[in-house]
């Protein structure tokens, strides 16, 4: 269909990871409001976690996990519970993806953030606290530790270590695995929508 949006198919990958074991990371931390004056989606990666990553004098905060040398090339962030709470700004996943992330692993996610993330090829992976703790410990012991993600199998694994199954909305999974967005599906339902409007709206 000519109106269907295409993006890269999301299947399996493995990557180094960074950890930010803080609960309730809100979208104002992920991308502060002063960066929301843009009218496109590009360029937000350099401002991700701006107030935690960049000191008031403009220098990088070398202690922030994303700034450490071993964070380079990491495509996975392991974060705390209720990640992405707060505003509905889709600039949050745009900024995280812009920095280079493809998956966030956390004990839980805020609703709107989870929806926004999946629409931008950023996979929210909710895992139980025990497995989450294993990921944090493994990274602490070995900064080169890697996580493997298999979306078709709904599996996340510490490379050379334990693995866990994760849940994902089946439709969102289908869209991610096939690299299509949801609007194409909705546009294909126009006859249903017209029928509804003729009797309801």
């Amino acid at each position: 269909m000519s109106t269907a949006g295409k993006r890269d198919a999301f299947t399996t990958f493995d990557s180094a990871y960074v950890v930010l074991p803080v609960d309730n990371v809100d979208t104002d931390q992920i991308i502060p409001a002063r960066f929301l004056k843009v009218t496109d989606k590009r360029g937000l990666g350099e401002s991700v976690f701006a107030d935690w990553r960049i000191l008031p004098d403009g220098k990088p905060n070398v202690d922030f996990p994303l700034n450490r040398p071993d964070a380079k090339g990491a495509q996975i962030l392991v974060a705390g519970a209720n990640f992405g709470c707060g505003s509905s700004r889709e600039h949050a996943p745009w900024a995280l993806v812009g920095w280079g992330l493809r998956a966030i692993v956390a004990p839980s996610f805020a609703d709107i953030f989870r929806q926004n993330a999946m629409k931008n090829g950023l996979l929210p992976i909710a895992v139980d606290p025990a497995f989450h703790a294993q990921l944090l410990e493994a990274r602490h012991a070995n900064p080169a530790a890697r996580i493997a993600v298999d979306l078709p199998a709904q599996s996340v694994a510490l490379v050379g270590g334990p693995s866990a199954r994760f849940e994902i909305d089946p439709f969102a999974k289908e869209c991610l695995v096939n690299g299509v967005d949801e609007l194409g599906y909705l546009l294909a339902r126009l006859e249903d929508i017209k029928r509804y409007e003729s009797t309801h709206a």
Partner: peptide, 20 residues
């Protein structure tokens, strides 16, 4: 309820959203 910008586009285009 609040929605992200992708969903803003969905509603502009179709007046509908996909929702659980």
């Amino acid at each position: 309820f609040g929605i992200g910008t992708s969903e803003v586009e969905h509603v502009l285009a179709t007046q509908c959203l996909l929702q659980r």
